[in-house]
Protein backbone atom coordinates (compact mmCIF):
# COMPACT_ATOMS: atom_id res chain seq x y z
CA UNK A 1 0.00 0.00 0.00
CA UNK A 2 1.30 3.45 -0.79
CA UNK A 3 2.04 5.71 2.19
CA UNK A 4 -0.20 8.77 2.57
CA UNK A 5 1.03 11.57 0.39
CA UNK A 6 3.18 14.10 2.20
CA UNK A 7 2.44 17.82 1.86
CA UNK A 8 3.95 19.26 -1.28
CA UNK A 9 7.23 21.10 -0.92
CA UNK A 10 6.89 24.89 -0.73
CA UNK A 11 8.83 25.45 -3.91
CA UNK A 12 7.77 27.07 -7.17
CA UNK A 13 6.26 24.64 -9.59
CA UNK A 14 7.66 23.23 -12.79
CA UNK A 15 6.16 23.16 -16.26
CA UNK A 16 5.76 19.38 -15.98
CA UNK A 17 3.16 19.83 -13.24
CA UNK A 18 0.77 21.59 -15.61
CA UNK A 19 -1.89 19.08 -16.69
CA UNK A 20 -2.66 18.33 -20.29
CA UNK A 21 -5.60 20.51 -21.39
CA UNK A 22 -8.96 18.94 -22.05
CA UNK A 23 -9.52 18.33 -25.78
CA UNK A 24 -10.79 21.35 -27.78
CA UNK A 25 -14.06 19.48 -28.30
CA UNK A 26 -14.74 19.79 -24.57
CA UNK A 27 -14.64 23.58 -24.74
CA UNK A 28 -16.50 23.67 -28.06
CA UNK A 29 -19.30 21.44 -26.81
CA UNK A 30 -19.64 23.42 -23.58
CA UNK A 31 -19.99 26.64 -25.58
CA UNK A 32 -22.65 24.95 -27.76
CA UNK A 33 -24.53 23.77 -24.65
CA UNK A 34 -24.50 27.30 -23.22
CA UNK A 35 -25.62 29.00 -26.41
CA UNK A 36 -28.34 26.44 -27.15
CA UNK A 37 -29.71 26.68 -23.60
CA UNK A 38 -29.61 30.46 -23.61
CA UNK A 39 -31.31 30.80 -27.01
CA UNK A 40 -34.00 28.28 -26.08
CA UNK A 41 -34.70 30.05 -22.78
CA UNK A 42 -34.83 33.50 -24.35
CA UNK A 43 -37.11 32.26 -27.14
CA UNK A 44 -39.45 30.75 -24.54
CA UNK A 45 -39.40 34.01 -22.54
CA UNK A 46 -40.36 36.10 -25.57
CA UNK A 47 -43.09 33.64 -26.61
CA UNK A 48 -44.39 33.28 -23.05
CA UNK A 49 -44.53 37.03 -22.40
CA UNK A 50 -46.30 37.63 -25.73
CA UNK A 51 -48.92 34.99 -24.89
CA UNK A 52 -49.26 36.41 -21.38
CA UNK A 53 -50.00 39.90 -22.69
CA UNK A 54 -52.62 38.53 -25.06
CA UNK A 55 -54.36 36.59 -22.28
CA UNK A 56 -53.96 39.03 -19.39
CA UNK A 57 -53.93 42.57 -20.82
CA UNK A 58 -55.24 44.15 -17.62
CA UNK A 59 -53.34 42.06 -15.08
CA UNK A 60 -51.85 43.80 -12.07
CA UNK A 61 -48.21 43.03 -11.21
CA UNK A 62 -48.95 43.25 -7.48
CA UNK A 63 -51.58 40.50 -7.76
CA UNK A 64 -49.07 38.21 -9.43
CA UNK A 65 -46.72 38.73 -6.49
CA UNK A 66 -49.21 37.40 -4.03
CA UNK A 67 -50.67 34.50 -5.99
CA UNK A 68 -48.67 31.28 -6.54
CA UNK A 69 -49.77 31.40 -10.16
CA UNK A 70 -46.76 29.61 -11.62
CA UNK A 71 -45.93 27.03 -8.97
CA UNK A 72 -48.39 24.51 -10.37
CA UNK A 73 -46.39 24.31 -13.61
CA UNK A 74 -43.44 22.80 -11.75
CA UNK A 75 -45.39 19.53 -11.73
CA UNK A 76 -44.63 17.74 -15.04
CA UNK A 77 -48.18 16.32 -15.05
CA UNK A 78 -49.48 19.89 -15.26
CA UNK A 79 -46.63 21.40 -17.28
CA UNK A 80 -46.74 19.24 -20.39
CA UNK A 81 -50.50 19.38 -21.06
CA UNK A 82 -50.33 23.16 -20.43
CA UNK A 83 -47.47 23.49 -22.91
CA UNK A 84 -49.50 21.57 -25.48
CA UNK A 85 -52.29 24.11 -24.90
CA UNK A 86 -49.78 27.01 -25.23
CA UNK A 87 -50.54 28.31 -21.73
CA UNK A 88 -48.29 31.37 -21.17
CA UNK A 89 -47.40 30.44 -17.58
CA UNK A 90 -46.24 27.01 -18.71
CA UNK A 91 -44.12 28.46 -21.55
CA UNK A 92 -42.47 30.97 -19.17
CA UNK A 93 -41.87 28.31 -16.51
CA UNK A 94 -40.25 26.03 -19.10
CA UNK A 95 -37.97 28.95 -20.07
CA UNK A 96 -36.89 29.31 -16.44
CA UNK A 97 -36.29 25.57 -16.11
CA UNK A 98 -34.20 25.54 -19.31
CA UNK A 99 -32.12 28.51 -18.11
CA UNK A 100 -31.47 26.94 -14.69
CA UNK A 101 -30.65 23.59 -16.31
CA UNK A 102 -28.14 25.10 -18.78
CA UNK A 103 -25.17 25.47 -16.36
CA UNK A 104 -26.05 22.03 -14.97
CA UNK A 105 -25.77 20.60 -18.49
CA UNK A 106 -22.36 22.26 -18.78
CA UNK A 107 -21.25 20.63 -15.53
CA UNK A 108 -22.52 17.28 -16.85
CA UNK A 109 -20.46 17.84 -20.01
CA UNK A 110 -17.45 18.43 -17.73
CA UNK A 111 -18.00 15.07 -16.00
CA UNK A 112 -18.00 13.33 -19.37
CA UNK A 113 -14.75 14.93 -20.51
CA UNK A 114 -12.90 14.54 -17.18
CA UNK A 115 -13.90 10.87 -17.19
CA UNK A 116 -12.73 10.42 -20.79
CA UNK A 117 -9.49 12.20 -19.88
CA UNK A 118 -9.04 9.65 -17.06
CA UNK A 119 -8.96 12.31 -14.34
CA UNK A 120 -10.61 10.34 -11.53
CA UNK A 121 -10.48 13.00 -8.81
CA UNK A 122 -11.76 15.78 -11.06
CA UNK A 123 -14.58 13.48 -12.26
CA UNK A 124 -15.61 12.94 -8.64
CA UNK A 125 -15.35 16.68 -7.86
CA UNK A 126 -17.47 17.60 -10.90
CA UNK A 127 -20.04 14.86 -10.20
CA UNK A 128 -20.33 16.17 -6.63
CA UNK A 129 -21.05 19.68 -7.94
CA UNK A 130 -23.79 18.32 -10.24
CA UNK A 131 -25.25 16.24 -7.41
CA UNK A 132 -25.40 19.33 -5.17
CA UNK A 133 -27.09 21.36 -7.91
CA UNK A 134 -29.71 18.66 -8.47
CA UNK A 135 -30.19 18.17 -4.74
CA UNK A 136 -30.84 21.89 -4.32
CA UNK A 137 -33.43 22.10 -7.08
CA UNK A 138 -35.19 18.77 -6.70
CA UNK A 139 -35.06 18.21 -2.94
CA UNK A 140 -34.21 21.38 -1.00
CA UNK A 141 -36.47 23.67 -3.06
CA UNK A 142 -39.43 21.29 -2.77
CA UNK A 143 -38.85 20.96 0.99
CA UNK A 144 -38.80 24.74 1.41
CA UNK A 145 -41.98 25.07 -0.66
CA UNK A 146 -43.81 22.97 1.89
CA UNK A 147 -42.24 24.57 4.94
CA UNK A 148 -44.88 26.33 7.01
Amino acid sequence: MNPPSAPGPATPWTREEIPEPLPPAAYGNMAIVLRAGLLAAMGLFVAGLSLFFLEHPGEDLARLDSVPYFTRYLDPRVLFPALAAARPGAVLTLGMLVLVATPMARVATGIYYFHRHEEGEMTVVTATVLALLLLGTLVLGSYLAHLG
Binding site: F52, L92, G136
Partner: peptide
Protein backbone atom coordinates in the same frame (compact mmCIF):
# COMPACT_ATOMS: atom_id res chain seq x y z
CA UNK B 1 -26.55 31.49 -9.80
CA UNK B 2 -28.10 28.25 -11.07
CA UNK B 3 -27.82 26.76 -7.56
CA UNK B 4 -29.63 29.70 -5.93
CA UNK B 5 -32.15 30.13 -8.75
CA UNK B 6 -32.94 26.39 -8.72
CA UNK B 7 -33.89 26.48 -5.03
CA UNK B 8 -36.00 29.63 -5.43
CA UNK B 9 -37.74 28.28 -8.54
CA UNK B 10 -38.53 24.90 -6.99
CA UNK B 11 -39.77 26.55 -3.78
CA UNK B 12 -42.18 28.74 -5.79
CA UNK B 13 -40.36 32.04 -5.20
CA UNK B 14 -39.80 32.91 -8.83
CA UNK B 15 -42.27 34.94 -10.83
CA UNK B 16 -41.45 34.47 -14.54
CA UNK B 17 -43.51 37.52 -15.56
CA UNK B 18 -41.05 39.65 -13.58
Amino acid sequence: AAAGAGVLLAAGYMNPVI
